[in-house]
């Protein structure tokens, strides 16, 4: 076990997968000589050469489409779209092309490609650099969407994504970039796609969360430890999400709070709440609630962004309310 920073874990995953399989290539803005806008691709150009590590122009649609075409003809490209907000520029290639190639070709083609993209929510980057757009992507059949909240998961999910035969969007949290954590030494230690992690087992209430919100949920659960026994589930894969783990947990606890940094309206939390309502109606002892950002763009000043994102205090209030409000 090594203790690596979040970005180092990503860097290690890329290096190991490139060493394991020469079809794995990296392309994106600033990924070569600069080593990535935030260091995630550091050293790869020197180690694997300019054929496999390419700096690209600022052409998000075209570099994602190029990754797709390359994935259909023998490579396993990992293309970096610098910020999640910029995925909107590449949306045709992601939504209409990559996600549907397998289906439209009747299985003739596969698209073993990865789009890595950084969510800078929580870093005071403002309305066009801090959006949590995971629901946009998760809404598209054919796309897999994963988001590791810690170094081990960021590494293991990225490796699974690279080895997956379909298009996977890997979201990374800039706010966690320097967080350290234990990371496996085994290059084949993967985090499976579609499997959530129970970060904290509990019996009173289930909290489902992912991405940057995970650590604020952890803090809330820890603060409540004497009052409420909280079960914290980090979804890790947004689509296809781990229904079995969530439904099993809610059946036991009878209570669900979903916490995410994206706005609540039409968000992934609504999907989870609806699924729980359909499948656990008889088990629920309190209304399902969501703690999410207000329906507004992400503000840049620290005090406003702090008020915008779900904080441990608000999350703890929602958890407490769920327990108090419901039937025993």
């Amino acid at each position: 076990m090594a203790r690596l920073k979040y970005w180092q874990a990503i860097n290690q995953a890329l290096r190991e997968e490139m060493a394991r399989d020469e079809a794995v290539c990296v392309l994106g803005e600033d990924v070569g000589a600069p080593g990535g806008p935030f260091g995630a691709t550091k050293g790869l150009l020197d180690e694997f050469g300019a054929a496999r590590v390419r700096d690209t122009p600022i052409s998000e649609a075209t570099i994602v489409g190029a990754a797709l075409g390359a994935s259909m003809t023998g490579l396993r490209p990992v293309v970096e779209v610098m910020f999640l907000d910029f995925m909107t520029v590449a949306m045709d290639q992601v939504v209409n092309q990559a996600a549907k190639v397998g289906y439209m070709s009747g299985g003739h083609y596969r698209a073993p490609m990865v789009v890595r993209t950084i969510c800078a929510s929580g870093r005071n980057t403002g309305p066009q650099h801090a959006q949590n757009l995971e629901a946009w992507l998760a809404h598209v059949p054919g796309l897999t969407v994963v988001w590791g909240s810690n170094p081990a998961d960021a590494r293991g999910l990225l490796k699974s994504a690279i080895r997956d035969d379909g298009p996977v969007v890997v979201i990374e949290s800039l706010a966690e970039w320097s967080r350290r954590g234990e990371v496996a030494d085994d290059p084949d230690a993967l985090v499976p796609i579609g499997v959530a992690a129970v970060r904290r087992p509990g019996t009173d209430v289930t909290v489902v969360t992912w991405g940057g919100a995970v650590h604020r949920v952890d803090a809330a659960a820890a603060a409540l430890a004497d009052e409420v026994d909280v079960e914290v589930i980090d979804l890790r894969t947004i689509s296809p999400w781990d229904r079995a783990t969530v439904l099993e947990s809610v059946r036991r606890t009878g209570r669900l709070v979903v916490v995410h940094d994206a706005v609540a309206a039409f968000g992934a939390g609504a999907e989870i709440a609806a699924t729980v309502a359909e499948h656990c109606f008889g088990d629920l002892r309190a209304p399902v609630t969501r703690v999410a950002a207000p329906f507004a763009p992400s503000p840049f000043p620290p005090q406003l962004e702090a008020a915008y994102l779900p904080q441990p205090g608000t999350i703890a209030d929602a958890i407490r309310a769920s327990v108090l409000q419901g039937v025993r």
């Binding site: 290539c25 054929a51 496999r52 649609a61 075209t62 570099i63 994602v64 489409g65 190029a66 990754a67 797709l68 075409g69 390359a70 994935s71 259909m72 003809t73 023998g74 490579l75 490209p77 045709d92 290639q93 209409n96 092309q97 190639v101 439209m104 070709s105 009747g106 003739h108 083609y109």
Partner: peptide, 30 residues
């Protein structure tokens, strides 16, 4: 689309196939 004939696909999005062809050319180069 026909993988045995190198037909990556027709496309209902105007311009949508251009980046994919670019990618196929890039993979040949790599």
């Amino acid at each position: 689309a026909d993988s045995s004939a190198g037909i990556l696909g027709a496309n209902a999005i105007v311009g949508g196939g251009l980046p994919m062809a670019l990618g196929a050319a890039w993979s040949a180069q790599v």
